[in-house]
């Protein structure tokens, strides 16, 4: 995984969840991040869409559960 994509994914999650940057790292996921709840997840997906001007498919929204998943979708 490219570092820049991971870094961008972290930025997206930090902005969407409105948490301190240090709270999110490459291994952060829905499982280990309290602010990343179901509502938080929608914010993360919306922030991704806003940044790339592209709509996510339902399958992607459901399957994405971590910073690494998100980074994998970055074009």
């Amino acid at each position: 995984m490219q570092n820049t994509k991971l870094q961008t994914a972290i930025e997206i999650v930090v902005k969407a969840l409105d948490v301190p940057p240090d709270d999110i790292g490459p291994e952060s996921s829905i499982e280990n991040t309290p602010a990343w709840d179901s509502m938080g997840h929608m914010s993360v997906c919306l922030e991704f869409e806003r940044r790339y001007g592209k709509a996510l498919a339902l399958e992607n929204i459901i399957a994405t559960a971590s910073v690494r998943d998100l980074a994998a979708m970055i074009p």
Binding site: S38, M39, H41, M42, L46, A55, A57, L58, I61
Partner: peptide, 10 residues
């Protein structure tokens, strides 16, 4: 957004 709608009622 249909995807957001079915994923989270957005």
């Amino acid at each position: 957004s249909n995807a957001m709608w079915y994923a989270g009622r957005i």
